[in-house]
Amino acid sequence: MDDVITVSIWRGRSEGRYVTYEVPRLDSQTVLDVVTYVQRQVDPTLSYRFACRVGVCGSCAMTVNGRPRWTCRTHVSKVAADNRLEIGPLANLPVVKDLATDMTEFFEKWQRAKGVFSPTATRNDTVAQIRPDAAARVAVDKAIECINCGVCYAACDSVRWNPDYLGPAALNRAWTLVNDERDANNGERLAAVAANGGCHSCHTHQSCEQHCPQAINPTASIAGLKRRTIGAFLRGEMK
């Protein structure tokens, strides 16, 4: 292992450039460790975003050597084969500054996809009994561990080509709620994900599945939404 790693980090907004830094190489060093070293030891004006550092909060995603990744759980040894790193902001999102992107559009699309739980029961009702092996619950299990990191959104060609497209994360979220038998808003939700820019805009490239750090397959969730919306349409439940 070399003593130092050469890292190029994006500086600026949409207009900017990569600036190269030398960072001491350590055992078990993550990409986030590298960025943090630069910010704390070399240039405190470097902007980036992180919180938990353990792969839970979903705030530290960046483009690492051309691929979107969660940087806190990405070891340098796995991605810097020639001891070089290029770290940029996530693609498909406006850059606020340096490595921090504006996630507004990303989360507004969750709202458009009706990604909010609408309960059928009140606090006075008994808690719903849902069997862990029920088909709908199994479908939810496969999609529920999303940490909202935006990696799938940055990896998606359809998002890049079509600004109206809701994107893999929002549609995956909608799929978990479509399969939640406690939810009361599936009529509106299916209409929302079937509208222009909804699930039918997915080209099944599977970049989201390829890059998701949580090993979720949003493409499969979107395929489920396609089936569910067509079923609702053919039954006359949707216009």
Binding site: A194, A195, G198, H200, K226, I230
Partner: peptide, 8 residues
């Protein structure tokens, strides 16, 4: 693409 076009 919308649902109707997709289905068609």
């Amino acid at each position: 693409m919308t649902l109707r076009l997709y289905l068609l």
